[in-house]
Amino acid sequence: MSTACTILLVEDNQSDVFLVERAFQKAKVPHLLQVVEDGEQAVAYLSGAGPYSDRSRFPLPLFVLLDLKLPRKSGFEVLEWLRRQPAIRRVPVVVLTSSNHIEDIDRAYDSGANSYLVKVADPIAVAELARAIEQYWVNLNQQPELG
């Protein structure tokens, strides 16, 4: 397993996790979705700490799909922390949240988000979103060098 095939999903809502996984399967995203449920776990995963120290099992992701409203540490905090880590600060982050408030959108970009997407309810729109993420962030986007 390598960076090239891992996406880290930071999402505390189990239904949303199920629906994102299902939409990715349907969009035939040939990638492994690693899921963590709160901000602290996201920090642990990205820094390879504790249960995530084995990088062969928990590789650095191609990009992070990050919810903003999270237990223990918010998405903003995770984002701000990540951008301060010299070795992994360039990992692309795609915010995926239910808030379409301009304050949240601006703060996310100010904190270093690479993209901001709003969760949708309509399953057809969810499928389109998954396909768009696959096409853009997996196929088109050029990966930065880490470290």
Binding site: N13, D16, F18, S98, S99, H101, K119, P123
Partner: peptide
């Protein structure tokens, strides 16, 4: 309004998504 958009929509996404599944 903020919590309506956040909290009310989460169960709605689940209801719609699971019905479709």
């Amino acid at each position: 309004a903020y919590s309506v958009s956040h909290d009310l929509r989460a169960p709605l996404r689940a209801m719609w998504g699971f019905a479709e599944a």
